[in-house]
Amino acid sequence: MTSEPVLETLRAFMAERDWQQFHSPENLAKSINIEAGELLECYQWDSDADRDEVAGELADVLTYALLLADRLDLDPEQIIRAKLERTGRKYPVEKAKGRSTKYDRL
């Protein structure tokens, strides 16, 4: 991997192919869901999925997620940190540690 940020690489890749025209927020959200289904398919019959197949499908999910964030002018790191902060308030460590219980039942 180069030192060039991955988002810059994605933008250049899409621009070279003139694919941005197809990247409406709706289309990108649909693509995330489609690729997530393909990722899940890797585990359909066996919990020991092929690592290379999983990596390829996960890369597709992440690519579309980054493109959607970019299209909506959202900073991925910032929105993840903000979500973690909100989730941390809903799931305080002292109540949630080691449990998968929904926050309203802790």
Score class of each variant (00 low, 15 high):
residue 50 D to P: 06
residue 59 A to K: 02
residue 73 D to G: 02
residue 58 L to D: 00
residue 32 I to R: 04
residue 50 D to A: 14
residue 64 Y to E: 04
residue 62 L to F: 07
residue 16 E to S: 05
residue 32 I to K: 11
residue 25 P to I: 01
residue 45 W to V: 09
residue 53 E to N: 13
residue 41 E to W: 14
residue 8 E to M: 14
residue 99 R to E: 11
residue 104 D to Q: 10
residue 56 G to V: 01
residue 89 R to W: 11
residue 6 V to G: 12
residue 22 F to L: 09
residue 85 E to R: 12
residue 8 E to Q: 15
residue 44 Q to P: 02
residue 44 Q to N: 14
residue 34 I to H: 14
residue 33 N to M: 13
residue 41 E to F: 13
residue 82 A to E: 07
residue 93 V to Y: 06
residue 17 R to D: 01
residue 57 E to G: 05
residue 47 S to A: 07
residue 82 A to T: 09
residue 13 F to A: 01
residue 18 D to T: 15
residue 83 K to E: 00
residue 66 L to V: 10
residue 11 R to C: 06
residue 72 L to H: 01
residue 39 L to Q: 05
residue 82 A to Y: 04
residue 97 K to V: 13
residue 61 V to L: 05
residue 24 S to V: 14
residue 49 A to M: 03
residue 18 D to W: 04
residue 33 N to V: 14
residue 86 R to T: 00
residue 101 T to R: 07
residue 35 E to D: 12
residue 78 Q to F: 13
residue 29 A to R: 13
residue 67 L to F: 05
residue 80 I to F: 07
residue 8 E to S: 15
residue 37 G to T: 15
residue 73 D to C: 14
residue 98 G to Q: 07
residue 42 C to L: 06
residue 4 E to W: 00
residue 83 K to C: 01
residue 16 E to K: 11
residue 46 D to F: 04
residue 27 N to Y: 14
residue 6 V to I: 14
residue 40 L to S: 06
residue 39 L to R: 01
residue 21 Q to G: 09
residue 98 G to Y: 08
residue 29 A to K: 12
residue 37 G to N: 15
residue 81 R to Q: 09
residue 19 W to G: 08
residue 66 L to P: 02
